[in-house]
């Protein structure tokens, strides 16, 4: 295994879809993200590993426009994110550890609501198709509060993908999922990767991350301590390598 702490050679070049330049996020005296540069092309799937408090969710928040960077910028297809305009948000789908769902609305009503906010016109056909994709057709008329955690997570995935975003951002998507729900999520994420979407996934789950990603990075204390393509990694040894990088930096 390559144990260099600098970036490994970049993956095959594709058209850049999302790009972060010198991204910094501070919370008072705490620097959560400390000057991160990142560029991902179509079909690239980046898994971000790192210990708690490394700034992974803050990085994801800034990539998705939920958090305003303290400095630096994010570009989607070359266009800087403008917080006062919303059109670029159609290009981004976010699956957070929060579901962004209304517990007293049904699965179908939640998707319809978000679909209208995104200005989607074909909701009558799109919603059943998305629910079928995540295996929730028979739960369409159930209120979200009646669904299990795994079903809610799958519904959140359907919500995040409802508008066919170019960039999909996932924050710990496998947390708390049973094997069946994890399998559905894994299949959908593979489809996204193989369908030339750009995916960024923050996770502690090394095996899922390595199985799905085309690139991996390790974030420690707000910085990317290591980055490289999954093709150069031996999966069995990565855990030890991960601990070596993390413990060497902390």
């Amino acid at each position: 295994m390559e144990l260099a702490t600098e970036s490994a050679p970049a993956a095959e070049a594709t058209q850049t879809v999302i790009e972060a330049r010198a991204l910094v996020r501070e919370y008072g005296p705490v620097v959560a993200v400390d000057g991160i540069d990142l560029a991902l092309g179509e079909g690239e799937f980046l898994a971000i590993f790192g210990p708690n408090g490394a700034g992974k969710s803050s990085l994801l928040g800034m990539l998705g426009g939920a958090l305003r960077p303290t400095s630096g910028e994010v570009r989607i297809r070359g266009v800087p994110l403008d917080f006062s305009a919303g059109a670029w948000r159609r290009r981004v789908g976010v699956l957070s550890h929060k579901g962004f769902l209304y517990a007293h609305l049904t699965a179908e009503e939640n998707l319809r609501f978000y679909g209208r906010l995104f200005g989607l016109k074909d909701l009558d056909s799109r919603i059943p198709e998305r629910l079928a994709r995540v295996g929730l057709t028979n739960r369409a008329r159930f209120e979200v509060r009646q669904l299990s955690h795994g079903m809610r997570q799958r519904l959140s995935l359907a919500r995040a993908l409802l508008h066919d975003p170019d960039v999909v951002l996932l924050d710990e998507p496998f947390t708390g999922l049973d094997p069946s729900a994890a399998s559905v999520l894994r299949d959908v994420l593979r489809e996204l990767r193989d369908g030339y979407r750009t995916v960024v996934m923050v996770t502690h789950n090394l095996s899922e991350g390595l199985a799905l990603a085309t690139r991996v990075t390790i974030q420690v204390e707000g910085r990317l301590a290591w980055e490289g393509p999954t093709t150069s990694l031996e999966r069995e040894g990565f855990e030890g390598f991960y601990h070596k990088v993390v413990e060497g930096r902390t």
């Binding site: 939920a66 948000r89 976010v94 957070s96 929060k98 962004f100 769902l101 209304y102 517990a103």
Partner: peptide, 18 residues
Amino acid sequence: YLEAQDGAMEGVLMSPAP
């Protein structure tokens, strides 16, 4: 109050709706 549950307001604010 209901918006705060499950981060729903965050989802609305991350939509293209002005």
